[in-house]
């Protein structure tokens, strides 16, 4: 694993990233590579800035006034800075999708939920949409359960199915990076297991960055883990290393449950 070349190829990289909610300095000098087709987990106590960091990647902070980025998140291979004021947030979100903490399907049919990202790109050919919807639902391990009820409301699905639908929605537009913000915190253990298996399956095709509150989850699904505290990255390493032999005392205290 260590010498696998893919692990050495970053898909994106935060360089000296700072973020401000008005006067609050929420992220401080963050440096972190996001490896291509790997799962990178962000862990840390509540309020440490891990979700804030995640939401920088698809510029969600731009939706609200008073937020400011400084520094860089470079997207490879072209190496452009996606948090610079010149980068268009709409364009960024078209290639970096996100799955939220609570399943947030639209009150539309299952089909329309998945097709939405394509429709807003102007794709309306039924054949193209049909194919993409099926491919995305298969990718999100929901096809078998949903194929006979594509026109039914997404609200009729269970919580776990809804979250997989949201993953399908994010996959439909072929994202280069998929962001997960505590995707299982609102789900029961069985649904959680399914999502975790799905994440491991998905990394064959797409680069994944996941925020999680659950350290076992980080250990189960991720290849590398970053521990954040008070807006800074305390330690970043391969997941095995972080959970067995962390180099920082703070990391060790956190993963052994002494605080957080």
């Amino acid at each position: 694993m260590v010498n696998e070349p893919a692990l050495q190829t970053p898909k994106a990289e935060a360089k000296n990233l700072n973020f401000f909610y008005s006067a609050v300095h929420a992220l401080k000098n963050i440096d972190l590579p996001i490896m291509r087709r790997k799962v990178t987990a962000l862990i840390g106590p509540s309020g440490c800035g891990k979700t804030t960091f995640l939401r920088c990647f698809n510029r969600m902070h731009d939706l609200y006034p008073g937020n400011r980025y400084a520094g860089e998140i470079l997207l490879y291979p072209e190496g452009r800075n996606i948090v610079s004021p010149e980068a268009d947030p709409i364009e960024i979100r078209m290639s970096i999708s996100m799955v939220f903490q609570k399943p947030n399907p639209f009150p539309k049919s299952i089909y329309e939920n998945v097709a939405y990202g394509l429709r807003i790109r102007g794709i309306s050919k039924k054949a193209v949409l049909d194919e993409k919807v099926e491919k995305s639902l298969r990718g999100a391990a929901l096809w078998e359960e949903a194929k006979d009820r594509l026109q039914k409301s997404a609200f009729d699905l269970s919580g776990g199915q809804q979250q997989r639908l949201c993953i399908a929605r994010a996959l439909a537009t072929d994202p280069r990076i998929l962001l997960f913000d505590e995707p299982t915190s609102a789900l029961d253990p069985t649904a959680t297991t399914k999502i975790e298996e799905l994440i491991i399956e998905l990394k064959k095709e797409v680069t994944i960055l996941i925020v999680t509150h659950n350290m076992q989850q980080a250990a189960r699904v991720s290849d590398s883990t970053a521990f954040m505290y008070l807006g800074e990255i305390v330690e970043y390493d391969k997941t095995d290393k972080i959970f067995t032999a962390p180099s920082q005392r703070l990391t060790e205290e956190y993963i052994t449950g002494r605080f957080g």
Binding site: M60, I90, R93, M94, M98, F100, F106, T173
Partner: peptide, 21 residues
């Protein structure tokens, strides 16, 4: 809910598309 708006923006919708859809 805000979550619905964010869900729409997160796949690359503009404000008007979010309003319209």
């Amino acid at each position: 809910p805000t979550a619905i708006r964010e869900g729409s923006y997160a796949v690359g919708a503009t404000k008007w598309q979010t309003v319209q859809y």
